[in-house]
């Protein structure tokens, strides 16, 4: 069970206070009507699903009810950072030398 730092509450809380909400930084197209069906499908359904560093959304469902972002390794489940909604990650797959166990 993850130990998650809520950037709004300012403390670590147990995973079962939160809900995972999928890949982060997916922007809804500003002009949906000019999107092709492929582009709309990409927005709705297609995901990176990386094996390694993942930027994902979580919501503090039984706490402050705020959404925030998390950078987590989807293999080791190590939480590398949390950052508020609207911010950008400091740690990315490109910036980090990924080592250790698979």
């Amino acid at each position: 069970m993850f130990h998650i730092y809520c950037p709004y509450c300012g403390e670590h809380r147990e995973e079962n206070e939160f809900r995972p909400k999928g890949q982060a930084h997916i922007m809804r197209p500003k002009d949906p009507e000019s999107c092709s069906d492929e582009e709309w499908a990409d927005y709705l359904f297609f995901r990176d699903n990386p094996k390694g560093i993942h930027h994902e959304m979580w919501v503090h469902a039984t706490g402050c009810r705020k959404f925030f972002n998390m950078t987590r390794d989807t293999v080791s489940y190590e939480i590398l950072e949390v950052y508020k909604m609207g911010e950008q990650p400091k740690i990315t797959a490109a910036s980090r030398v990924v080592g250790g166990e698979k």
């Binding site: 069970m1 079962n16 699903n49 994902e56 293999v75």
Partner: peptide, 12 residues
């Protein structure tokens, strides 16, 4: 609910 390649999930 979270993405995971670790072949394990959470205790709850």
């Amino acid at each position: 609910g979270y993405n995971g390649y670790g072949q394990r999930g959470s205790y709850p």
